[in-house]
Amino acid sequence: MSFLNPSNGAWSILALLVALLLVLVTFVKFTRLWTVILIALLPILGVWTFVKAPEWGLWFPKDVSTHGAGMDSLFNLILWMVAITFVLTEVGLVWCVFRYHDKVPGKSLFTHGSHKLEMIWTAIPAVALLVIAFAQIGTFKQIKFEDHWPTGGPYSKDKPIAHVIAYQFAWLMRYPDANGSFDSVDVIESPFDFVVPVDTDIMFQLKSRDVLHSFFLPNLRLKQDAVPGMTIPMWFQATEVGEYDLICAELCGWGHYKMAGRLIVKSKPDYEKWLADKRAALKSNGTADLEAAE
């Protein structure tokens, strides 16, 4: 098994697990000690895995969008707040188990609560949560709200770059004909590959023929369900030329895991050339196949 390779960080986790198993033998006798250690390991290992995760490649894939930065920073904001709360509460728990065991003489502290404390630990998280909630709004609006959709560029709600059609179990991108019409017979259909120009606001319409699918571009932090009966406009801007996975993110049947596509980001001239080649292919008379056969 490859993760037993010592150069891999996961090996350390396994080693720790093995060590913990050895604890078992002594656990019954030293229950309190080991409980303290086990619960303490939760925040320690928990934080450690998050620190090491980027190194193991277990972090967000590379961001090549204009949406991504906002989302990633919001994730990190929540990550910090969550991490602090996590560590503090777990430390509190560990301290209690460590300090207040049944060998301590006397009875426990007889109290039914403290109004002041309740107020404090209601008010502070309330404020923190409200901060988190309101911090989200700007980015969400930018991605989803109609008044933030691109208008000035080549692609807009009424002039989308393509219709992205999902069906069991494939993606079909339909580009307009040379006059920009989607109702023409000369529309261009590109199975699997969603080709877009770089550094351009891309607006597209998402549709489904049969069941729910979800259009997911990990590298662009973009996800939207394709709903049969609905045409959903979406927009993004890719900032780097390359090929990125397009993944179906909503269960759509047995072939869900196979429903792959690809976002191909090209430079603008390359994109125009690709489109022109696709249009020319409609004029093919098949003689190219004859030549290939020779």
Partner: peptide, 14 residues
């Protein structure tokens, strides 16, 4: 490469 449109034969371009 392209699958068969409208059937469960999908594109294996990945």
């Amino acid at each position: 490469e392209n699958g068969v449109n409208g059937t469960a034969m999908l594109s294996f371009k990945r």
